[in-house]
Design a protein around this nucleic acid. Structure first.
Lengths: 336, 336
DNA sequence: ATGAAAGCGCTAACAG
DNA sequence: CTGTTAGCGCTTTCAT
């Protein structure tokens, strides 16, 4: 079952492998190869079950038809859906995707980018990691097209796909205020990248505009120690001398953990506190409680990121920042 | 910013690229290259910011240090977690992962396997698609190591990692019966692969043993049309002339959709009907209802699949089928 | 219309 | 100890 090469089929037919290549890669339509030889080559290739060696082709052409995707954690529903749509869209263009996870870790980010670069991917779509600007610069220095997704490095001249975090957060906060919430808490990751800071600030500014801002209710947790820190935060909020009316969880994982501890500490949703989550969770559908959430157009984001990247791979030079609007929704409990 | 090759650094130092290769790939420790030349080469490589071209290396060595992973749908929490653990484990061995989705579609499965084979991946971990045995055979014919995960093709001599679906389903059903459930329904995909048939049969056999089997309560839905068919199933179950005590949802997606429609049709969980789900859902934690679920050791499965694959890549010939036990659990509502 | 040959960047014999 | 050389399988230019 030795793998058959173009040379093998050329030998069998007594022609040169150059001709075989021409025919098999579809470049013979310039009528430069006779119709019958064409057919004979194609038939023989099929007979011998020829499978092109993409590695050799890549070495020769300089293109791998592969894109690298670097997310935080593919098992996270948000990134899983994003990766799915990126993969499906890439498929349409004939590209394949190498997916990797940083776990928000700078060293992993560095390693992964180096590996992808050495594998000579044609482009990279990545979720920036805090303080990783120099690493992203390596991609730029290698002249590899890239698009930042979900977050961006300020002052870094590169493509970006994201949502209007600030606006969505501010509007959702206003909505809570309209529902008579007066003491609103925020739980967010201690990450200094726009996606998170904008969510935090959108909320804070809305609170300030309404004279409701209380610094003590803005809580930042460490990504690595989120479980314990969120638990602590929930307990603290419950024990405030005043009633906290709502909590804004800045990401889906924070929200799931947060709600879990709200249940454990006996906080009733929504009677004791309301919940606002940045990101829709598929199984909100099964939760029997009303939850307000901000929904990002994940599919559009993923597809657009690929479109943008492919354009650059095909030579486009223009850098663009594409910001989608997020939607504000509420899942109702069956009691309503 | 032209990319620098071994030749470039050889030229700069006036040595041959063969020596450079020897040093840079760490094979100079046989003391065959002088200590000082070694250091000079390493230093120069760093100075010139040399990055090895893995494509060229792959062409020459025949190894790509890449494994292909074919799942149903990466945005599905189960496969997302599985892919995550596969990727993290592969990372430990220095392998990178190309992830792709079949969406349970045979043609897509075929295309993806062909692409992975042409990309010369060193091994493939895949979730079998119904009727895709001939496609899996292609991998075998190319002498590429593989491991089937989650499901297997009967009679196909290949590695397999999965869980004891039959046993877990039977035991969970017995547990429902012990809770006085008398009319138990099953909603499952109409897929003829072990993972699904075993779940269905485990439940059916447990019911038979207890004289509770009713064929009319075993419902199979089409993957493509699951949304509508599950809705219909829930309505039908509600309208049975007797009270259905529990529903066994054979997969997480079916369960989420099912519970959604239970809410919509006003079925109270657990008072009207109990719910048993094959697979744990992260956000069961936020659902304020008691749900019984079967939890697969996803991390162990993913890691073991990689271990097994790497062993084969490294020359092992033995085929093995590794079956984990799944755990049976219950999330309680805060009311309990 | 087809063949011959160079070369992508690397590794691995084999020389010296 | 280090250099030379021959490919890996493919594309592509240049001859014929």
């Amino acid at each position: 079952m030795a793998t058959v090469s173009m040379q093998d089929i050329a030998d069998r037919l007594g022609v040169s492998k150059g001709t075989v290549s021409l025919v098999l890669s579809g470049k013979a339509k310039n009528k430069r190869v006779s119709r019958e030889l064409c057919e004979k080559i194609v038939r023989t290739a099929k007979d011998m079950d020829y499978q092109p060696n993409e590695i050799a082709r890549s070495l020769r052409t300089g293109f791998t038809k592969t894109i690298g995707v670097v997310v935080t954690d593919i098992s996270n529903e948000f990134f899983g859906r994003l990766a799915f749509h990126i993969q499906e869209q890439a498929k349409k263009y004939g590209y394949i995707v190498i997916t990797t996870n940083t776990n928000e870790n700078l060293n992993e980010f560095d390693d992964l980018i180096t590996i992808l670069l050495n594998k000579r991917v044609d482009g990279i779509i990545f979720v920036p990691v805090d303080n990783g600007q120099d690493i992203a610069l390596k991609i730029f220095n290698n002249n590899i097209p890239m698009v930042q997704i979900d977050r961006y490095y300020p002052g870094f001249e590169a493509n970006y796909i994201g949502v209007n975090n600030y606006k969505a957060s501010a509007e959702a906060t206003e909505a809570l205020i309209n529902m008579k919430c007066r003491h609103i808490a925020v739980i967010c990751y201690d990450i200094h990248l726009n996606a998170l800071t904008e969510r935090r600030n959108g909320c804070i500014d809305a609170l300030k505009r309404n004279g409701l801002y209380e610094p003590g209710l803005i809580i930042n947790v460490d990504y690595e120690k989120q479980e314990e820190e969120i638990e602590q935060a929930i307990v603290d909020l419950k024990n405030k001398p005043f009633k906290v009316d709502a909590i804004f969880f800045c990401s889906r994982r924070i929200c799931i953990t947060g709600i879990k501890y709200m249940h454990r500490t006996g906080i009733k949703i929504p009677d004791d506190m309301q919940v606002l989550c940045f990101d829709k969770i598929e199984s909100f559908q099964i939760a029997n409680i009303p939850i307000h959430y901000i929904e990002q157009p994940i599919r559009n984001m993923g597809e657009k990121a690929v479109d943008m990247l492919i354009e650059q791979i095909n030579g486009s030079e223009e850098v663009c920042q594409y910001v989608f609007d997020a939607a504000i929704n509420t899942v109702k409990s069956v009691r309503d």
